[in-house]
């Protein structure tokens, strides 16, 4: 019987970078793109099961699409206990959103400093090439520095949005397998 493992995925980033767009797009399997900007109050909660390839197991992603506005930070951090994975989003046309990525990463990691969990750094709005300020090199450097994986996507063009989620799901699954092995090792 297929096993279901559940992961708590926190999506963070500055206001207006495209977190809600990415989450909604991913949840609706690439059909729904929110054209108008809706300020996320607090956090939006969404669930999406992801099938791990070559297995029958599914990873249910419980996504907490957090608000980016500073006002909500304290409120939002309450949702962040026991995260399984995190996605940090920034906007390539906004230098500030890129520089605050580190801040977000720190905030999330401070919730559970002992346990390492997989994360992804996502550069959104790559369709606006002319307004692009942050280059992929800078993004990759930051990702390497903070131990995340770098992904570029465009929620508007529905391009490459699923990749970080799939990657994180498979990582989590691997983690699970490792743990199970570890558990087995104790009694074997």
């Amino acid at each position: 019987m297929p096993a279901v493992i559940r992961a708590k995925c926190i999506v963070v980033g500055d206001a207006g970078v495209g977190k809600s767009a990415i989450c909604q797009l991913f949840t609706s399997d690439g059909s729904h793109f929110p054209k108008n900007y809706t300020l996320t109050m607090g956090a939006e909660f969404m669930v999406k099961p992801v099938v791990i390839p070559d297995t029958q197991d599914t990873v249910e992603m419980y996504m907490y699409d957090s608000a980016g506005k500073e006002i909500f930070t304290d409120m939002v951090m309450k949702f962040w206990d026991h995260p399984s994975m995190m996605i940090v989003v920034y906007d390539v046309t906004s230098e500030t959103s890129f520089s605050s990525c580190e801040k977000w990463i720190e905030r999330v990691r401070s919730q559970k400093p002992d346990v390492p969990f997989p994360g992804a750094l996502v550069a959104n709005k790559i369709d606006l090439e002319q307004r692009r300020i942050v280059g992929p090199k800078a993004g990759k450097e930051l990702a390497m520095k903070t131990g995340l994986d770098y992904y570029e996507c465009s929620a508007k063009e529905m391009q490459n949005v699923d990749t970080p989620f799939y990657f994180l799901a498979s990582e989590y699954y691997k983690l699970y397998q490792e743990k199970v092995e570890l558990f087995k090792a104790f009694v074997a």
Binding site: G16, N36, Y37, T38, L39, Q130
Partner: peptide
């Protein structure tokens, strides 16, 4: 507030595209 933010955002986008 959401409504205002929406307007804000769209105007910012507009400004950004225009300046570009």
């Amino acid at each position: 507030w959401q409504h205002h933010e929406q307007n804000n955002f769209s105007m910012k986008e507009f400004i950004a595209t225009r300046t570009m």
